[in-house]
């Protein structure tokens, strides 16, 4: 009975708020905003010719810097949970799967490289490339290829931090009198390419490690240890 009442009240609350939002959206003007024109005007200086990439890695590069921070942070957080190895072999990987993965992974790496290159003039870029790399990593984990993380934890940590580190170093190296990320034209194009390559590699490594979820140094599960504290 109490549950029914709570359910009804919550549903009414959601319906009311949804109605309010609908009114709000219908009241929005039909005319577009004028930021698109400003992006076009700045495109020549941005070092790339695709407007979305220009926004992501030049006009609003600071967002992207923090966002790569979010990725590395989440990997740190996930590893801090000290999860146990999940994908214990439940049986041998079938020959078809093994063969498929062997052929697919190199192809995916190529596709990632292509997407990365494409990013400066067409839809694509570091995130798309990183996602494909991450997908390749997930395939490897699923077919019981250990990620390099568990054989070379330090190297894997370095790979995962590469994107943020290169981005930070690039921002500080080009920092003059506290002016952050002020790069234009050709210099900007090269810098963006460098950042994108590093970011794509790190994003791939982080996504694959997030899928596996256990920290490289976690030999035994924390759950078996005694938890002190209240």
């Amino acid at each position: 009975m109490r549950q029914m009442l709570a359910f009804t009240l919550l549903t009414l609350l959601v319906l009311a708020s949804g109605l309010g939002l609908a009114v709000a959206v219908l009241s929005l003007p039909d005319a577009p905003t004028d930021l698109a024109a400003r992006v076009d005007a700045g495109l020549d200086d941005s070092g790339v010719s695709h407007p979305v990439t220009a926004v992501l890695l030049n006009f609003r590069a600071y967002d992207t810097l923090l966002e790569i921070g979010v990725l590395l942070l989440v990997l740190t957080g996930t590893w801090s949970f000290g999860l146990e190895r999940r994908l214990d072999p439940e049986g041998p990987v079938g020959p078809i799967q093994a063969e498929l993965v062997r052929n697919l992974v190199p192809l995916m790496v190529l596709v990632a490289g292509h997407l990365l290159w494409l990013g400066s003039k067409a839809p694509g870029g570091a995130f798309q490339a990183g996602a494909v790399l991450g997908g390749a990593g997930v395939l490897l984990v699923l077919s019981q290829h250990p990620l390099p993380a568990w054989r070379h934890p330090a190297g894997y940590r370095a790979t995962a931090s590469l994107g943020l580190l290169v981005f930070l170093i690039a921002s500080v190296a080009t920092m003059r009198d506290g002016r952050l990320l002020e790069v234009r034209g050709r210099e900007a194009g090269l810098l963006i390419l460098l950042i994108e390559v590093a970011a794509a590699i790190s994003i791939g490594a982080i996504l694959a490690a997030l899928f596996a979820a256990e920290a490289p140094e976690t030999a035994t599960s924390l759950d078996e240890r005694k938890e002190p504290q209240p």
Partner: peptide
């Protein structure tokens, strides 16, 4: 020509 800022 969609606004690229929301896309980003």
């Amino acid at each position: 020509t969609p606004d690229p800022v929301p896309h980003a």
